[in-house]
Computed example of a mutant assay.
Amino acid sequence: MPPLEHLPDAVGGIATRALYKRIGDFLFAQAMAPTPANYALAYAVLTDPAGDLAKSIAARTDGGVRLSQRDLDELGLRAERAAAAGQDAEPDKVELLAARAQSQMDGFTDVVVRMHSHTRDFGRELIASADAIERSRVEQGSSRLFVDDVARITSAMIGRVREAEHQLEDARHEAEELRQALEEARGDALSDPLTGLPNRRAFEQAFAERLAAGRNPCVAVCDVDHFKAVNDRFGHAVGDRVLRAVAATLADACPDHLVARHGGEEFAVLFDGDLAQAIAAIDVARATMARRRLRVRESDELIGTVTFSTGISASNHAERLEQVFERADALLYAAKAAGRDRIFSDAETAI
């Protein structure tokens, strides 16, 4: 893992640094000048590897062919259109969700206000109805008119009760829609779109929750070995598939723990068990991944063995995530330096 990805970055952290590096690698591999237009093209391809633009570039560069100037001119125009569409579409999605939630909240407030008004009026009518029944009983005794009055008043009360029930159901429905909208927004903010795993923010929140609960979790930092070589040889679309394969392998081996994509080719796992359990689970994932022989889907070309290295550290009482992660990251560097495809833990032993 290049040291550049661990330099402080006020803009977006490790993930942003990784994106900068991938854009630079893309431009260099295609012998493209670092112009704004070429940067926009690379950005559009790398941030939407499953999009039409990325697929078009993959098809044109199949077999190691570089993009021609004509290709760059045509693709650059498409990148500008895609960027413009993305700038328009993404805020719309967020704004639409916010507007929807606000509208539902306003509607819920209106229902509550109406319910309060109806409840107040209903109380007054109950008092008036009770008085009317008592007067009718005194004046008419057990006559037919008294029975009719009781039936009429009772029917009116039942009608008001049913109206109140309908309004309560409306309020419940509005509240449920609002809950779902907010849950959708929260899910989007805490998941990685490429792998479907929780993202860095979700990982940090989960660690904070465990710390608040008085627990001392273990943190594993995993980084795919020689990932740049995979991207350079096979393209970023294949690289993304490799990341999804590693993500799935880690998730399968650690079903009771939080597996997150921390950024770039780096994953983080939050273990609730002790260090030995964390090491055992990661080693299952490491061995499983090392046995696989991945191939390019379109050409059946052998990608070869894909491995990852890991550093694992156990947190101490009330220790911040930054401290634990720094130790795990240093152990990851040691695992890389020792030959990769291995695990280093606080015990400074390799597996």
Rank of each mutant, 00 (worst) to 15 (best):
D106S: 11
S56D: 15
A171Y: 06
M1H: 02
A98I: 12
T119M: 05
V306C: 04
H257Q: 10
D131N: 06
T154Q: 07
A18T: 10
Q104L: 14
P91H: 07
C254R: 00
V113R: 15
K336Q: 08
L275H: 03
Y20V: 05
M32I: 04
G263M: 05
R295Y: 14
A208C: 03
T305Q: 08
A101L: 12
K55Y: 05
F325L: 14
T349W: 14
R70Q: 10
K21M: 14
K55T: 11
R100C: 04
I158F: 12
E163M: 08
V242I: 02
R215V: 05
R135P: 09
L302P: 07
R135T: 14
A280G: 06
V246N: 00
R200Q: 11
F122S: 07
D346H: 10
I312T: 02
A151C: 13
D148N: 10
T307I: 04
A175G: 14
T35Y: 02
G107Y: 07
T249Q: 03
F344K: 02
S299M: 01
A213I: 02
G214S: 01
E125Q: 15
S299R: 03
D256Q: 13
A278Y: 00
A248M: 00
E204A: 08
A318P: 04
P198I: 07
R200D: 08
A59S: 14
A213S: 09
A253H: 02
L243K: 03
G12C: 08
Q69I: 10
G263D: 01
T310C: 11
F344E: 04
A128F: 03
A276P: 00
R200S: 11
D232Q: 12
E74S: 13
T288E: 05
A82I: 04
G107T: 11
S155I: 03
R286P: 00
H226W: 01
D232S: 12
L67H: 06
A245F: 00
V324I: 01
R162D: 08
V94C: 06
R135D: 15
R78G: 03
S143D: 14
P2D: 15
A44Y: 01
R261G: 03
A50C: 15
M157H: 10
D240I: 05
E134T: 08
E322G: 15
T307P: 04
N216F: 04
K336M: 02
R135Q: 13
S191E: 02
R233A: 12
A347Y: 06
G304I: 00
R60N: 09
V94M: 07
Q30V: 03
F203R: 01
A18H: 10
A202C: 08
V224D: 02
R244P: 01
D225E: 09
G86N: 04
E5T: 14
R297P: 00
A42S: 05
V246R: 00
R124L: 15
A314V: 02
R293A: 08
A40P: 07
E134K: 09
F28D: 13
V296T: 03
A164Y: 03
D52N: 12
G76Q: 05
R200W: 09
V161S: 13
A164M: 08
D232F: 14
G187I: 10
A128G: 09
D110N: 11
R78L: 12
R340L: 07
F207N: 03
G64C: 06
L77Q: 08
A213Q: 01
A229R: 15
S142W: 08
V112C: 11
E5M: 12
A213Y: 00
V147G: 11
